[in-house]
Write a protein that binds this DNA or RNA. Sequence first.
DNA 1: ATCCTCAATAATGTCGACAATCCGGGCTGT
DNA 2: ACAGCCCGGATTGTCGACATTATTGAGGAT
Lengths: 240, 240
Amino acid sequence: MARTKVGRERVARKPGRKGASEVGVDAYRLLRQAIIAGRFVPNERLVEANLSKVLDAGRTAVRAALVRLDQEGLVTREHNRGARVRLVSDDEALQIEEVRAALERLLARQAAAKASSSDIRELRQVIVEMRKCFANGDAIGYSELNPRFHQLIWTAAKNPTAGRLVGTLKSQSLRFQYQTMLRPGRTERSLREHELIFSAIVAHDPEAADGAMRDHLEEVLENLRWAIGNKGRPPQWLPD
Amino acid sequence: MARTKVGRERVARKPGRKGASEVGVDAYRLLRQAIIAGRFVPNERLVEANLSKVLDAGRTAVRAALVRLDQEGLVTREHNRGARVRLVSDDEALQIEEVRAALERLLARQAAAKASSSDIRELRQVIVEMRKCFANGDAIGYSELNPRFHQLIWTAAKNPTAGRLVGTLKSQSLRFQYQTMLRPGRTERSLREHELIFSAIVAHDPEAADGAMRDHLEEVLENLRWAIGNKGRPPQWLPD
DNA sequence: ATCCTCAATAATGTCGACAATCCGGGCTGT
DNA sequence: ACAGCCCGGATTGTCGACATTATTGAGGAT
């Protein structure tokens, strides 16, 4: 009865707090976003007490988040030595990208087989916007459309297993992605490749979708190799 | 010095305990093995207190293990509702198998490109043993050789990223695997397919390895579909 | 009889405390 | 001067305690 625990004020950790969201999952998402956004230097130590304050969550929640992120490959944990943000080497980035390519091919194939008309409508929408960005020379707008296009394919494929996997892979190699669109003329080719994938899906032709996605990601991989080769030099536009 | 804490007996939780191993990782491995081995009914509730006693680990360790296994897809956790062993539906099993096929194709390709002579030696060893098992009609021996063959390919491919992924996928769908070898004549075909993969790797022909692995896993997938179609009926040999 | 309410129970989520461990810096002995 | 040792600070790992939440079952009102 009315055991309104007065003993320990469960006073909100901080005044403004979304009531509906849980603490643990929040800590996980926040930390994940922070890592993906590159707000930590690679190999930086993640001290639980600090994160606890910064994320405004108990150490327990931080701990759970670190365990998840470890399993996810975004941080490494050594016994009694804490957690660090994981540094993915160049070789690893290539491996990850290869795996991602294999999965995206599968997803493109399945998307072509199973895409609903609403899936196709949304894809078309993105393609239209991409064309606009290209016409306006808006390279960064284009870059932001890119992941949306791929995500739509994942949902169209209706294969959540593969979708989750590709998502985590992408988050691991995201740091390398910013270099991929700097090459002159890359945007135009990319647009054409995306259009090919799209039309294959519209035509419900799995074979063609697979091939188009293969070509596209082969191109991306080639770019990545090039970017890694040019490492150390500051990334810069080569004005055409 | 010699702060040999007597206050709280850290006496081994149970008499026989490997000193070098840590508790947490042990709990994880044990629970994982138990789930994979099918020692739980699908959808069975995993009560932390019970596991704590059974696994002989603190509740904290159990908790961490559950978080990991959740991320790995072997259990599901609902907030304030605990964890259950995850039941993978038939559809999901098919999806998983499709993803696995895509990854194994990649691995076969890379194995053909990069296999060292010692890798090849070990693979040959397994093939020889497989032939023996087939000749003796030892179907279960053959079944146990199967995963070893594939694992050797993963190591030969030298792509730990893909290897880990395939490993977790396999653990998720392991429950469905026992049905795959029951079909009459399956063993012989399987052996031939494995031999084809092997010779492609020996010849360092990535394209052929990819194709052979594709054919092999297409066959496996077909078997899985058949097995799922025949569900409910008790699995039984059809004597030829 | 059926549905609603509400307490008892069981399990999870979270926190604080403390031990175990690692790391860096100073001290000592040769 | 230099190597090795040892200690103190900092950080992680683990445990127990307790609040919170879902669930179950009994009892009462309609």
